[in-house]
Amino acid sequence: MNSDELQLKRASKAALFSLLNLTVLPVIGFIILLLIYQKSSSDSIDHYYSVIGIKTNVFAGIALLLVSGLMILLGGFDSPWTWVYVVSYFTFVHALFILFATWVLVRSWTGEKLKKNILSK
């Protein structure tokens, strides 16, 4: 296996663990993602995808945990309206992050970088 292929494997692995961290393997997925990042050399495709994965998951962490936490803090734990916002918000935004990570995963399989809207091509 040459180094290009190896990089490609690691890139798709990075994208996969970014998705897993968002779904069934939270925290563990992120640690593995960091390990892949560490192993990659800058300018390579696996570096590119591990950075995207880390960014996605940091944003997701802020958007989901921090914002939901703030909602609960500001809205009050015992207010029904807090839960109306938190549950709908968390479900919907979480799903959007999963969809984005899925698209990234699919892109990583071809070894290309992310591009603009697929339909505008």
Partner: peptide, 26 residues
């Protein structure tokens, strides 16, 4: 259902041609 999303994304990403019927792809 997730597999269907992954499948559709993957296939559209790997498309060999741009079909004139963009609405159907959408």
């Amino acid at each position: 259902f997730f597999m269907m999303t992954l499948f559709a994304f993957n296939v559209v990403n790997k498309r060999r041609r741009d079909h004139p019927n963009k609405a159907a792809v959408l």
